[in-house]
Amino acid sequence: MTKQWVAPRPGGSAVFELVDVTVPAPGPGEVTVRVRAAGMNPADAKRTRSGAPADFPVPIGYELAGVVSAVGPGTTIASGPVAVGDPVLAFRVRGAWTEEITLPAQDVFAKPATLGDAEAANLLLAGTTAADLIRVTGVRAGETVLVHGASGAVGVSLLQQLRSLGARVVGTASAASADAVRRFGGEWVAYGDGLEARVRDLAASGVDVAMDCVGSDEAVDVSLALVADRSRVATIAAFERAADAGIRTIGGAQPESRAFRDSVRQRLVDLAGRGDLVVPVARTFPLAEARAALDVLESGHPGGKLALLP
């Protein structure tokens, strides 16, 4: 038996419970991983806020880092051969907030030695989302990109990935997060009244692309005012506004996005291994203290990624 956090019924993080579960032995195409760190994302609770009772219980957590404890017959992982004792990371996981788990090997990657467990466990959900935003908006070297919510997890990954493309990035954030935006290659601008004018002052030659990671009306309105081509405005949060405004939306459940995100996982792991994609971690918590960690996560200002350590 192992400990795992689950949502036994709809209700979001308020209903999460730590329960005992059985870990099945891995079959062909599967590995079992002893978890060293589980990543935390707003989506962990979002997906359990509603749904049919028959769809529950739902195991919590999408990504993790750990050590392989068993390998199914004839199995290799996404990055190649694997053996018991190998350090790995994984994403798309169903139930990462646990001590041990059996996973499809296609979602498991060798963890670079340069990458800590908490960082590795928080790399791919935000990283693949950022890469998907870049894909759908077609960013090219030399273009100017406005990123709303540049100090959040997806925003920080965007800053770094856009910098590697040779794009100029203007990132919105609070004054308290200005240094974080600058650290990862962006030009900081404060959100709030007068945002459009401040961006115009910074980017006198115009804004080519806008990416919204917050979902506020301000983010959508300013993006529409600054970017002439609405196909080059994309959001991961303002879905209702997007439909009316004719801008792009992306989500991991969309077949095209899902396939693309799966295809770029190894590239992002390689970037992180070289130090070209940094995952700032604010705090770690014991697995049993997930509720306290959720309070920090859902405050909206954790100051970096959070991880649960079994």
Rank of each mutant, 00 (worst) to 15 (best):
K3L: 14
K3V: 06
Q4F: 04
V6M: 10
V6Q: 15
R9V: 09
S13N: 13
E17W: 11
V19P: 02
P24A: 09
P26R: 08
G27K: 13
E30R: 09
E30I: 01
V31W: 11
R34D: 05
V35N: 03
M40T: 00
M40D: 00
A45T: 04
T48D: 02
A52W: 07
P53G: 00
P57A: 06
P57R: 03
V58Y: 10
V58M: 14
Y62V: 03
A65I: 03
V68F: 08
V68E: 07
P73E: 08
T75A: 07
G80D: 05
P81R: 12
A83L: 09
V84D: 05
V84M: 11
P87I: 02
L89P: 01
A90G: 06
F91M: 12
R92E: 04
V93L: 10
R94N: 14
R94I: 05
G95T: 01
T102D: 08
D107R: 15
D107Y: 15
V108Q: 02
F109Y: 15
A110T: 13
P112Q: 11
A113M: 07
L115R: 05
D117V: 00
A118I: 02
N122P: 02
A130V: 03
A130E: 02
A130R: 07
D132G: 05
I134M: 11
R135I: 01
A141H: 08
E143N: 06
L146T: 00
L146K: 05
H148Q: 05
H148W: 07
H148A: 01
A150H: 09
S151I: 05
S151H: 12
G152N: 07
A153D: 00
A153H: 00
L158E: 01
L158H: 03
Q160W: 06
G171P: 06
R182M: 03
R183F: 12
R183W: 13
G186Y: 12
E187G: 04
W188Q: 05
W188I: 01
G194K: 08
L195C: 03
L195Y: 09
E196R: 15
R198G: 07
R200V: 07
D201V: 14
A204R: 15
G206F: 13
V209N: 02
M211I: 14
D212M: 09
V214D: 03
S216Y: 07
S216K: 11
V220Y: 07
V220A: 14
L224I: 13
L226T: 04
D229P: 09
R230W: 08
S231L: 11
I236T: 15
A242M: 10
I247L: 11
R248P: 02
T249D: 05
I250A: 00
G252W: 12
S257H: 01
R258T: 01
R261Y: 03
D262C: 06
S263C: 02
V264H: 03
R265I: 00
L268M: 06
L268Q: 02
D270N: 09
G275D: 09
D276N: 11
V279Q: 08
V281P: 01
R291M: 03
A292N: 12
D295Q: 13
L297I: 03
G303W: 14
G303R: 15
A307N: 06
L308N: 01
L309K: 10
P310E: 08
